[in-house]
Nucleic acid binder design. Structure first.
Lengths: 144, 144
DNA sequence: CATCTTATTGGAATAATTCTAATTACTACT
DNA sequence: AGTAGTAATTAGAATTATTCCAATAAGATG
């Protein structure tokens, strides 16, 4: 089995495991998000996907992204005003938003910290997720 | 001095202290945000402001909100996809977003926790702010 | 292979925000 | 007070981001 075919099979399995039909569109959307590990907007995903599949529509990209988010293969993030961004990193992590460059960096979060943070919740509050966004400046920045 | 006049004077002072001209529009926008302590969108602020000042324009509401945010009298928050919301609570706090009701609750954050959270940042990262958003369900919910 | 369901498509519709150019309100001088 | 200069407001147009819709296509089920 070629590397290509195998990679394809992996994506396909990930989708099936979430009970969503592994359509070519979903596979290619998932692929471009996993390939370049940044935080693209739907439009940016659309642009990247078009080279592999020129006939795909923007509506489908939105549909696929929503599907991938709701089955947990991709996370969506909203920094300030502006389009929703999509994130391939599924480990618990925070986002650091560099205000000078506009770039976004993932910051791994140990489970212990997440637990600690949840202790500020008054009784009766059940958090299913915790999102942490830092803003500021970073010395060396390459990713986004 | 009447309570009304005095309140007016306070708002006016707050604006001047930030080096922004205390225009009637800015005062009324700030007032409606401080009066009902929820997390309104620009449109909701516009609707509330219109009863006090029917001639105000939506563009002005956006302008005033931007000004108030940048001089630190109001905070802006972005939950998922959707319009920016504005928050009168200036104490350090997190937001709890109740997924059933859609309501948002402020959760006070002790300074010690903020410090603790910042320890996850690698060297070279300087955070000027930390935003924390919980999502989940809360037992008793009234505010938003 | 007929039927039923689900996904995709392109375009129109809506929502949220920003831009623009014209007017109005202040401020600072004289 | 009068006027030049700057800043704020206004209404509406323009832009951006996203969703909706109706028609077609693809896949699953029996």
């Amino acid at each position: 089995m070629s590397a290509q075919t195998e990679k394809h099979a992996v994506l396909s399995e990930q989708l099936k495991a979430c009970d969503v039909r592994p359509t070519p569109q979903r596979e290619v959307v998932l692929k471009v998000i996993l390939d370049k590990r940044d935080h693209p907007t739907a439009d940016e995903v659309f642009a990247r996907v078009k080279s592999a599949m020129p006939t795909i529509s923007l509506a489908t990209v939105y549909n696929c992204l929503d599907t991938l988010v709701s089955c947990g293969l991709v996370r969506s993030v909203n920094f300030e005003r502006g389009p929703t961004r999509y994130c391939p990193n599924l480990r618990p992590h925070a986002h650091f938003h560099d205000e000078q460059t506009g770039s976004t960096h993932d910051i791994d979060l140990p489970e212990s910290l997440l637990q600690k943070v949840k202790t500020v919740l008054p009784p009766g509050y059940e958090a299913s997720s915790v999102e942490i966004i830092f803003r500021g400046k970073a010395r060396a920045s390459t990713s986004n």
